[in-house]
Design a protein around this nucleic acid. Sequence first.
DNA 1: CCAATATGTAGAACTCTGTGCTATATTTCA
DNA 2: TGAAATATAGCACAGAGTTCTACATATTGG
Lengths: 107, 107
Amino acid sequence: MAKTKAYKSDVKAAIHETALDLHETGLIDKHTMRRFDQSCLTPVRKFTAEEIRALREREQVSQTVFAMYLNVTKDSVSQWERGDKRPAGPACKLLSIVAEKGLAAIA
Amino acid sequence: MAKTKAYKSDVKAAIHETALDLHETGLIDKHTMRRFDQSCLTPVRKFTAEEIRALREREQVSQTVFAMYLNVTKDSVSQWERGDKRPAGPACKLLSIVAEKGLAAIA
DNA sequence: CCAATATGTAGAACTCTGTGCTATATTTCA
DNA sequence: TGAAATATAGCACAGAGTTCTACATATTGG
């Protein structure tokens, strides 16, 4: 696991926690709090069929096992990789997490 | 962050990694490998409307911010919490992660 | 070596999530 | 006071995700 990635996400988590604490102490208002939350969110990528397949193969798992991790059916994963259907909002978020942190992050 | 939670997920991640290494070394077959994967997966809960709201309020964020984290619209979160609609597979997985590890885990 | 299993493709029909929009009400803060 | 954040509500619609079947190939275990 690359140190830079872990560092990055730790920073974001820390910013969120710090902002939360400052809000509870009354030092910043909700308005500013929300700006902090937006700034520390990892942007969600769009995934092509090939990228999804490459991602799964990088993690060395079958479509069935990959599907279990994402809590979808194996057919859905197959359809994504063939370009038959495209993953929606929440599915893309999960794929982004896997792409950044690996399958273990959503175990 | 509670140590027990971090420990638990670390164990599961470790089992997965170990199984993967054993497979690459040729010490276990794919069949067994898959069983390992299934056993170290966190079961995905069903969430009631009240549980979703409680979860969001525990994390101290508005529906809008919560929605940004899950990569869905604020309307969807509102509908979940009112019992108008129920989160699907991938959305439930994300909610499970937040319930177990907190919002920072999907930042 | 052979039967069983895992893996992936393919397509069809169906459910209902998730989106987008508008409108309304209340609260919060400058 | 008035602008912005927050949450509810309803409705129409595209398409995501499910479920089913059938088929083709590895791969494997006995």
